[in-house]
Amino acid sequence: MALSREQMAQRVARELQDGFYVNLGIGIPTLVANYIPDGMEVMLQSENGLLGMGAFPTDDEVDADMINAGKQTVTARIGASIFSSAESFAMIRGGHIDLTVLGAFEVDVEGNIASWMIPGKLVKGMGGAMDLVAGADNIIVTMTHASKDGESKLLPRCSLPLTGAGCIKRVLTDLAYLEIENGTFILKERAPGVSVEEIVAKTAGKLIVPDHVPEMQFAAQ
């Protein structure tokens, strides 16, 4: 079975470490916040100028001046700080964020990522994605392994305009967890019940398959 969105978030959450400053993109990455292990302290950065994003507000707490980068109303946790967009991107570009998680349309064996523009369709903009991929060392891309028609999104070379070049080393898809090294994907883990053969068939870019590919484990919900 392919991973659910929640399982993908759970798997990414295992990469969190106590004391990490983390930027979570829109979509599946946002769900990672729901799976921060008990007892672990993580500060979430929202690029509109908030470090230490808290839970959604209660109805009474809703404040139009308190939003995240997805324009959702949020709260600030104790220990939070709020600052300008220039300060926010100074911490992103300066490499101060410990982990960035974001979605993508395509990644390739050179660590290129395409996530913001499909030619011929309306282009809405890159927001902060180009800054995030250029500024972070530790990035996890979350995406579906293949399109609905079964076409691989893990490619020898991205076909869409890039968000960043040579900056991606780790990818979690609904089928597998992979790393990118020396111009190849390396299969590290597979989703429960998903065969190595299926992953190989759906990976267009060069893929190294180790002798043993462990299956991801998830606690029963």
């Binding site: 690029e47 300008s84 967009s85 220039a86 926010s88 991107f89 992103i92 570009r93 290129n112 890159m126 927001g127 902060g128 994605a129 180009m130 800054d131 250029a134 500024g135 305009p161 890039l162 968000t163 960043g164 070049a165 040579g166």
Partner: peptide, 27 residues
């Protein structure tokens, strides 16, 4: 890019005509 936009404004106000950034290279 959002960070470039913020920095363009900041630099403009600070009398800095241009700056270098890794954001957007290869895109």
């Amino acid at each position: 890019p959002q960070g470039t936009l913020a920095e363009k404004m900041r630099a403009g106000g600070a009398g800095i005509p241009a700056f270098f950034t890794a954001t957007g290279v290869g895109t």
